[in-house]
Computed example of a mutant assay.
Amino acid sequence: MSFFQEYTREIIATAILGILLIVFRIGATKMVRRYAASNHNLEHRTNLIIKYLHLFIHILVIIALIVIWGVQTKDIFIALSSITTVVGVAMFAQWSILSNITSGVILFFSFPFKIGDVIKIHDKDFPIEAEIEDIGAFHVFLNTHEGEKIIYPNTLLLQKGISIIKNHFDDKEFMD
Rank of each mutant, 00 (worst) to 15 (best):
M1K: 09
S2L: 10
Q5E: 11
I12D: 04
A13W: 06
A15M: 10
I19H: 03
L21S: 14
I22A: 14
G27Q: 02
T29N: 09
A37I: 00
S38P: 01
N39T: 13
L42W: 10
L42P: 04
E43D: 14
R45K: 13
T46M: 03
N47M: 10
I50N: 01
I57Y: 00
H58G: 12
I62L: 14
L65N: 07
W69S: 05
G70Y: 01
G70M: 04
I78P: 01
I78R: 02
A79F: 13
A79S: 12
T84R: 00
T85E: 01
V86R: 04
V87R: 02
G88W: 04
G88R: 07
G88V: 07
G88L: 05
V89P: 00
M91D: 03
Q94C: 05
S99K: 11
V105A: 11
F108H: 02
F109V: 10
F111H: 12
K114D: 08
D123G: 00
K124N: 08
D125A: 07
D125I: 01
F126E: 13
P127D: 03
P127N: 01
A130G: 06
E131K: 15
E133A: 08
E133L: 14
D134I: 05
A137S: 13
F138M: 11
F138P: 00
H145M: 11
H145V: 09
I151Q: 11
T155P: 00
T155C: 07
L156K: 14
G161Q: 15
I162H: 08
S163R: 07
S163P: 02
S163A: 10
I165H: 06
K166D: 14
D170N: 15
D171A: 11
D171Y: 12
